[in-house]
Design a protein around this nucleic acid. Structure first.
Lengths: 206, 206
DNA sequence: GTCTATACACTGATAGAC
DNA sequence: GTCTATCAGTGTATAGAC
């Protein structure tokens, strides 16, 4: 991330990234970003004029990663069920590497819908914008072919998203009511990479 | 809610409830709680000594509602598949009435795990604490009976939770990428009350 | 570019009149 | 109980030396 920036600026953005993703905009202190970056508070303002600005830079970085993540989905296997397997696995893999990302996006899009929405739109090419449409079309085709049971594309997509994303968003809650430690959570997620696609396919296969 | 309290105190708690659920602890200003309650800032401190205190009172109210919500699950229909239908429908119904609640709990449990965890534990009797166990037992029984495909109870529970809860947590995101307006979101949720249980049953039925 | 010192605004909390 | 006025602390942002 942010390879093209000078050292200090890069460190700041890196530190800000972690702080904001952990604590959100309101919960983050400029001081703790400076501490994490190992520099002075004033330098933050030297590079990024304001907290708002620095936050926007982080949002920009974050949303840059999204199109790459869903790019895999576009050119996945030809069989519909194989396609689902690949989508689920690569999706869970991606979030595993950025586990705080969903909660961050959800919270900040709630706080300031325009900002995140425009950032996402900004980094998504035509291709990525249409991915939902494409997926919806594929689902309708399969329904018409009779390979899967009738289901509204929107509902299908939400089901898939829910099963992949929610466990990460609700991680502390899940750990509290279902698990004991960190290790068992990782194990659970690992299992889900196979389990979720099987669950979905079993649900829709005729 | 909070029927037993005097008028002003009740108004404050009510206002605090809405503000905190909307904006979280960090994002909420005592001033805006006072404004919403139609009283003065100083009165907040008269009734609840501090912001922390007032927040705890809200958490207390919030978690009080949870055992009631899952109580229905305990005494639902006798057939396993019917049971799932009832759980899903009553769960989605409950969250529909408190749509901000999941995001609130998830965020605040992330910020301060002990507080929320103890509040939940505080209001849950033995019965409610064991509901997960019970549900897990039922699932194992059905697997052994051969009525459903093999699935780990934890995974099943997470799947069910994800499908019910996530759409509310991700509402603004869903509206951005899938929908246009408020009306279509409500319609979508209404559909899900039937769709989700059908999806789950199709996924596990042998 | 990087630091220290400081200005300025905001927010939670208290004092005191009524 | 409820209000106005105000304090103390904290957080963002800036000035200015190096």
């Amino acid at each position: 991330m942010v390879d093209e920036l000078k050292n200090t600026e890069k460190q700041i953005l890196e530190a800000a990234y972690h702080e904001f993703l952990e604590k959100g905009f309101e919960g983050t202190r400029m001081q703790s970003i400076a501490n994490r970056a190992g520099i002075n508070k004033a330098l933050l303002h030297y590079y990024y004029r304001s907290k708002e600005n620095l936050f926007n830079a982080v949002v920009n970085e974050v949303t840059k990663a999204l199109p790459l993540a869903i790019h895999n989905i576009l050119n996945s296997g030809d069989d519909f069920f194989k396609k689902i397997e690949i989508i689920v696995e690569s999706y869970i893999d991606f979030i595993s590497k950025n586990p705080q990302l969903p909660r961050f996006i959800i919270n900040e899009i709630t706080r300031n819908p325009e900002l995140i929405a425009s950032a996402i739109a900004n980094h998504s090419g035509i291709k990525e914008m249409r991915i939902i449409e494409q997926l919806a079309n594929i689902i309708n085709q399969e329904v018409n072919k009779g390979t899967i049971k009738p289901i509204k594309p929107h509902q299908f997509i939400i089901n898939l998203l829910s099963l992949c994303v929610f466990p990460f968003v609700a991680k502390p809650l899940i750990q509290f009511i279902l698990l004991d430690d960190e290790a068992s959570f990782n194990e659970l997620i690992l299992e889900r990479k196979k389990q979720v696609s099987k669950f979905i396919i079993d649900a829709i296969k005729k």
